[in-house]
Design a protein around this nucleic acid. Structure first.
Lengths: 333, 333
DNA sequence: TTGTAGGCGTTATCAT
DNA sequence: ATGATAACGCCTACAA
């Protein structure tokens, strides 16, 4: 890998002049310019970004920290963000936290070591105390998909989305409900609250959270389904499409009719919703916009523009109804 | 971001001593050690990898260049590789080429600028002339999923896999075939050749490649299907699961029965195969092994171990048969 | 227009 | 055991 100093020697000028030519800044003799550029091209000179960054220039590294890249929603989001970042001259360092807070923090440290210009984060948690810890890391950061309140965020209201789902299921005549997901989730809160508002006794109706625990997951789900057999129909809301499809698999095994006996709603509206059978009702997030705004904002922060206040973009979701919740006329009437 | 020099000032020792303490190499006075470590911890010292790399140390950056991160197969592969890389202290720079050769080359240049220690590449093409260009880039590189012949590779034989698919479809009684995919593909070659070996006149039977062209794609497929209406059943082989599902969608629109009239085979055996209806027959790649061996090999190359010869791991594929090709008994008999 | 020199944060080699 | 000091590749005054 050729350096400026080497080009300088080869062309018989000073390293500073080479720098000037290659950065096209100040006026330089046309001949010298040509000579240097030719030499650089000939040896395929590539500036050492590590060295550049040492002298105070940016690193042009953007951290991209996601919870699970194998979830099609995040894969698509990363694709959008990579593209937006590349357009602006930034490069992505990708980290997969696997929903592990410790890994998330470790990765953030690594990004500091690389002096990353900024980080786009899909946080493992939005707990206040956790967010405080994140802020201490002190690196330009914008949260994508989740609202971190005190950190710049581009997100959708999971709470409202949960309420939308509740309303839809209620409208379709279901009177018993299950939420599938793990840990804290605003979706769940919005879902429950909306059910309550509509006179559903969420205690009596055994509102339940299933943890992602492999075998137990399935057992618990089956047990819950049996408990509700006497109801008018169960509405299941899963925290994302991938989870929803796992549930669907179990329902199929049990030969339960969807949506006649049990309705199912996913989240993210990934392409798998259209593939599933029955097709899956889901909540769509404006993925391109999240990606674009996320990158735009992190670049702003890096440039120290409008950084005095925490900017949070709340975007809209859309409930996409499909066969997994659309009851046959017979049943509804 | 505190530096060694600053810690040195705060603790009243030389920067060199701070370096020694923090790297835990040579013997240092216990008191001094404690003082320095405390100070470092207090200010959350993070070594500047950019500076380290300048002095000849590695960058610990691994390029991860993929064609399409939104394809669940690659998303899963990236997940495996990220995990393997992290275990070994490496960090991934992710690039999405979108099957664009120019972008691939541009990204490889960027990786050189960051002085990445090595690159894991899912190449856009395996043409000989293209591979020659890649070699000129002169950066430790291992190709994953594709055999680049003269570059270290961890791959499966797409040719053999194609043959497997042909045999399966022949065995199920299909006598007319379509391959769905774009550009050069060993899968296609293996598929055709095996058909020929079994007496199928691949010219007469209108063996066809459909390009990924959006609207035209669908039209062409429909036209091709109509041409084959008089056959005993058409076997369609798509170059990956995502493409296969697009085909399935078209087939459903046309109310064509799968697999009674048309059989469908995908590639990669991603989780969507089990979700599709009918479930999709596909070729499974040993994804964990590809990821693990890929990372192992690139690390070897970085350490200049066994780098005298080009190492190529060919791994096995398995044809996973599912409902999309398993004809009803009635028809087979 | 061009060259010299200092510094960015490390590591590593000398002395001391 | 510890402190200078010279790199590493680059940018940027400052001088000429």
């Amino acid at each position: 890998m050729i350096t400026m100093t080497e080009i300088a020697k080869l062309t018989g000028v000073s390293q500073a002049t080479v720098s000037r030519v290659l950065n096209g800044n100040i006026s330089v003799n046309t001949e010298v310019k040509k000579k240097v550029l030719d030499c650089a091209k000939e040896h395929n000179y590539q500036p050492n970004i590590m060295a550049q960054s040492l002298v105070g220039i940016q690193t042009f590294i953007l951290g991209m920290v996601v919870t699970d890249i194998s979830n099609p929603f995040f894969a698509e989001l990363v694709k959008v963000i990579e593209s937006e970042a590349a357009t602006r001259g930034y490069t992505l360092m990708l980290f997969n936290t696997n929903y592990d807070k410790e890994r998330e923090k470790k990765y953030l440290d690594i990004l500091k070591r690389y002096r990353a210009d900024g980080v786009l984060l899909v946080p493992v948690s939005d707990e206040e105390s956790y967010v405080e810890e994140l802020k201490k890391i002190n690196i330009p950061m914008v949260s994508v998909t989740l609202d971190l309140k005190t950190i710049d965020s581009v997100y959708i209201s999971h709470y409202d989305a949960g309420a939308k789902v509740a309303n839809h299921l209620l409208g379709m005549g279901f009177d018993s409900f299950i939420f599938v997901g793990g840990g804290e989730d605003e979706k769940e809160k919005g879902f429950i609250n909306e059910l309550r508002k509509n006179g559903i006794d969420t205690d009596k109706y055994h509102f339940t959270i299933l943890e992602k625990l492999g075998v137990d997951y399935k057992k618990t789900l089956i047990k819950r389904l049996q408990e509700e057999e006497q109801s008018d129909g169960i509405g299941i809301f899963a925290n994302n499409d991938v989870e929803a499809l796992k549930v669907l698999e179990v329902l199929k095994e049990l030969k339960i009719n969807v949506p006649q006996d049990v309705a199912l709603v996913g989240f993210d509206n990934t392409f798998i919703c259209k593939i599933a059978s029955p097709t899956l009702t889901s909540v769509a997030q404006p993925i391109e916009e999240i990606g674009r705004l996320g990158v735009e904002r992190i670049v702003e922060l890096i440039r120290k523009e409008n950084q005095d206040q925490c900017v949070r973009y709340q975007l809209d979701t859309r409930l996409i109804t499909r066969a997994s919740t659309i009851m046959s006329k017979k049943r509804v009437s």
